[in-house]
Each structure stands twice: as C-alpha cells, then as structure tokens.
C-alpha cells in the first residue's frame, strides 16, 4: 500500500503525536502559570493533568473529524511549541 498524504496513518499520527505534544504544552504552561500565580506545584500538576486528558481526547477526535489535516498539524504542533516555550520562559523567570 502506498502512503500518500491522504492515508489514515497521517490522521493517526496527528491524533496521537500532535495531540500528545499539544497536551504536553498545555500541562507545562498550566503548571508553570498556575505556580507563578500562587498555586502549589502539585495542585497545579493535578489540575492540569485532569483538564489535559480531556483536551487530548478532544484533539484526538478532532484529528479524525477535521477536513484539513494541515490545520490539525498547525494547531497541535504550533500550540505545543508556543505553550512549552512559554512554560520554559516562566520557569526561567521564577528560578
């Protein structure tokens, strides 16, 4: 089978990897941000994890439902980079 741009594998990769990266970024930014705003580190960790898994689920479904796969990649990978970067910046400021 030839793997073209329309092959389901690309959708699966976007759902699994793109969704994971975005969720990582969300959790990192949420933890650093909430900690900066005065929440305890472990509280921030738990809260962002609970919300993070729901976000992962939505992205996972969206990756299959979305018309444009490029948009899915742009949002998940782009969002992941921006949020993870922002988290590291906040950490740099605090430590």
């Amino acid at each position: 089978m030839r793997i073209t741009g329309h092959h389901p594998l690309w959708r699966i990769a976007a759902a699994v990897l793109g969704g994971y990266a975005f969720t990582w970024g969300f959790i990192a930014l949420g933890m650093a941000g909430a900690f900066a705003l005065g929440m305890s580190f472990h509280d921030a960790e738990h809260l962002t994890a609970i919300i993070g898994f729901l976000i992962y689920l939505v992205l996972f479904l969206w990756a299959f439902a979305a018309r444009s796969l490029a948009r899915v990649w742009a949002v998940t990978a782009g969002g992941a980079l921006v949020m993870a970067g922002a988290a590291s910046l906040i950490q740099h400021q605090l430590t």
């Binding site: 990582w24 959790i27 933890m31 305890s40 580190f41 738990h46 898994f53 993870a84």
Partner: peptide, 30 residues
C-alpha cells in the same frame, strides 16, 4: 479518565523533565 489521571506522572512527566528545576525549587520552598 481517572485511570489516566492516576498515572499522569508517567504519561506526562512534565514536572520531572521540562519543569524539573521548578519542581525542585517548589520542594525546597515547601
């Protein structure tokens, strides 16, 4: 969902990787 939350530290080890310095600092503060 709660099964995932219980093992969140394994699936998203943010506090032991990317944010490890922040984690260490918070532990000393605590």
């Amino acid at each position: 969902l709660t099964g995932l939350v219980i093992f969140a530290g394994i699936y998203f080890p943010v506090g032991h990787t990317q944010l490890d310095p922040l984690h260490e600092m918070s532990e000393r503060l605590e």
